[in-house]
Design a protein around this nucleic acid. Structure first.
Lengths: 278, 278
DNA sequence: GCACTTTGTTTCATATATGAAACAACTAGT
DNA sequence: ACTAGTTGTTTCATATATGAAACAAAGTGC
């Protein structure tokens, strides 16, 4: 019962490649170094196979073999891909000045994030003027269903995709304000998708409020989210729903706008009101 | 001509994997989007094969298929790898405060970079107090042989590796102060390796000076380089060879030291007592 | 509209990548 | 020192991933 949603997966696959990717994904910030034997056990593949995978990856710079011990680490070739991705999306550089402005205007800290699996991955962050805010750095990762940016991103995926993403996975509960079940999550997402933004007050962390809005590419696809976060004392319900909300949404729209600038724009309306308030 | 160096390559390879990696590597910041047909031509592989590679990569999130057109882009899964690499190396976070200090002390801008193929990849950068300096951002890339950090990194590789890296590749000449041939490069590298640092005055860009030093892991391997750069008026030959040089080298050593802290250190001298546990 | 090229998808015989098992090199335990 | 258990490397028959070619769909030009 491993595979198949009934999408059938017509076996248009390159097993060698898929295994290689899986192998690289084993490495995390906590566990940076693995021996061949460990990898063999983790991947549950024959030793010879893992050996070949590892040597191929090493020859291509995606893995480094520590010279003295016989263990492997991620090689710096993986960076190239990451940076080319960032540069090609250029969400980060595009969004940065906007985030700075937003942070300056609101006094709160501003963030940019994308969805990675069921996590939000923080790509940029401007510290707020008040230093009370939580201190998430670039590259950190939080469960998507429990953060404002995450929910914006999930909403952008569409119900079907979210369903598939979370089936057979139970939601880690962050606080009692976060959705505890898949249906509950889906319900909130549909609402939030209509709204075009997501707010939370003391939901993820006590005393911390935040509001997030989606960044879209020229096709209308949600490719990132921005958010601001600050102490509840500063960002209470009233403020979040008023001026602040408008500012965040506007900023997100502006970024989307710039991103879509050079593109064919594919008969998409000139943004501004994509909010579709039904 | 195809089957590369006579390193023999004992065919411990997973062709599917290698091809997949190659495929991802064709994406650059300039050329972010490819159709199947284009990829087929670029990789010089049968159409069916490329098709399978692409679908496998897409299914795993390493490639995104633009919905309307039929073109592919890098998927955000590649980011995960990059960030795990950075986090696992934790050179960046470790080095950052040191770089800030260095920049503050010298007034120049400070950089951190690693080697990627024949390029230096900039991982971090603190802007100097004088805003005249050139404006390289994180993720930018320069020919290694022509920059101070690059040469530090190449020197760290060792002559053999450098030889192999550059054979059949002619050095793009940046200025007439950069080495024009492989032998010339190697000669300078051996000198610079002994020195333990690399300086340049108006070599890469007129009026711009810089000095770089290597960052090593606990095995002694050079894993990164730091540099400071500023206008020649501020960093002339005399300054570079005196106080400033000592500071840069010391900072690099400090960073290396902290990096090696938790590790077995492999009969490496303890250098100085480092605070265990944060 | 109709030939003609280009591109994406599918099929299927066969060349080839793969996993079982043998081998070699190390540890560790008694 | 000898046995038994890891782990890394190699070999080789065969299951399987692959590329040629057929098919389908979508442009392009006249």
């Amino acid at each position: 019962m491993k595979d198949d949603v009934r999408t059938a997966t017509p076996s248009y696959q390159v097993p060698g490649l898929e295994r290689g990717l899986r192998l690289m994904e084993v490495f995390t910030r906590d566990r940076r170094e693995f021996s061949l034997a460990e990898l063999t056990r983790l991947l549950d593949l024959p030793r010879a196979t893992v050996f070949r995978l590892v040597t191929t990856l090493e020859q291509n710079g995606y893995l480094d073999k520590e010279p003295l011990r016989k263990t492997y680490r991620l090689g710096n070739r993986v960076l190239r891909l990451g940076f080319e991705f960032l540069a090609s999306q250029d969400v980060v550089t595009t969004a940065h000045p906007f985030l700075e402005q937003l942070s300056r205007d609101t006094g709160a800290s501003a963030h940019l994030g994308v969805l990675d699996d069921r996590d939000v991955l923080y790509l940029d962050r401007i510290a707020g003027s008040n230093h009370l805010v939580s201190n998430v750095g670039v590259g950190t990762r939080f469960p998507a269903h429990a953060t404002t940016m995450g929910r914006v991103l999930l909403a952008g995926l569409g119900a079907d995709a979210v369903q598939k993403l979370y089936e057979n996975v139970d939601l880690p509960k962050a606080t009692d304000q976060t959705p505890q079940s898949l249906p509950a999550l889906l319900e909130r997402l549909t609402q939030e998708q209509e709204d075009g933004y997501v707010t939370s007050v003391s939901a993820f962390e006590a005393g911390l409020s935040s509001i997030a809005a989606p960044v879209r590419n020229s096709y209308g696809t949600v490719i990132a989210a921005i958010s601001i976060a600050g102490p509840e004392s500063q960002l209470d319900h009233a403020t979040l729903e008023g001026e602040i909300r408008a500012r965040v949404c506007q900023t997100a729209a502006d970024i989307s706008n710039v991103l879509g600038a050079g593109k064919p724009a594919h008969n998409q309306k000139p943004l501004s009101a994509v909010a579709t308030n039904a």
